[in-house]
Computed example of a mutant assay.
Amino acid sequence: MSIPRTVAAGSNFLWRAGALLTATAIGFGAFGAHGLKQRKDINPDRINAWNTAAHYAIFNGLGLLLISLHPRFSVHRFAGPAIMTGTVLFSGSIFALTLDHNLKFLGPVTPMGGVIMIAGYISLAL
């Protein structure tokens, strides 16, 4: 039995997005563990926030990889893009705020990204 073309196309997008998100998060996590600790201008609370952002990005990247393997969810038009977008907004804003705390306009982006991530996972349940 072959997989319908639309499933394969959706799976391919989610697989690549999940792999790129996970790889990027691992790199950012390594930078947080080694590079940020050497900077004296970044306090430990910000490093903890950085690590949280990296963990969320890794878990969501892995989630996208798993979603891509399931034919029913791989073509879901909302969940995958929502999880990916929410992760980029959530983790990306934390990464940026950690490096430059003057980017205060990004403060509201973090919870907005979190809500979008949660909406993506809830849509899978429904």
Rank of each mutant, 00 (worst) to 15 (best):
S2G: 10
I3V: 11
I3L: 13
I3Y: 05
P4G: 06
P4M: 04
P4W: 06
R5N: 12
R5W: 04
R5C: 04
R5Q: 14
T6Q: 14
T6F: 05
T6E: 14
V7H: 04
V7G: 01
V7N: 02
V7R: 00
G10N: 07
S11R: 12
S11D: 06
N12E: 13
F13I: 06
L14I: 01
L14V: 01
L14H: 00
W15P: 01
R16F: 12
R16K: 14
R16E: 09
L20H: 09
L20M: 11
L21V: 07
L21S: 09
T22E: 09
T22L: 13
A23H: 06
A23Q: 03
A23W: 07
A23K: 04
I26N: 01
G27Q: 01
G27F: 02
G29M: 01
A30R: 02
A30K: 03
A30H: 02
F31L: 09
F31E: 02
F31T: 00
A33T: 15
H34Q: 09
H34F: 12
H34I: 14
G35E: 04
G35Y: 05
L36Q: 01
L36H: 00
L36T: 00
K37Q: 13
Q38G: 07
R39W: 11
R39Q: 15
R39H: 08
K40R: 12
D41R: 07
I42H: 07
P44W: 08
D45V: 00
N48S: 03
N48G: 00
N48D: 04
A49W: 11
A49F: 08
W50Y: 11
W50K: 09
N51G: 11
N51E: 14
N51K: 14
N51I: 08
A53Q: 01
A54I: 09
H55P: 00
Y56M: 06
I58W: 07
I58M: 15
I58R: 05
F59K: 00
F59A: 08
N60Q: 12
N60S: 05
G61S: 15
G61V: 15
G63L: 07
L65G: 10
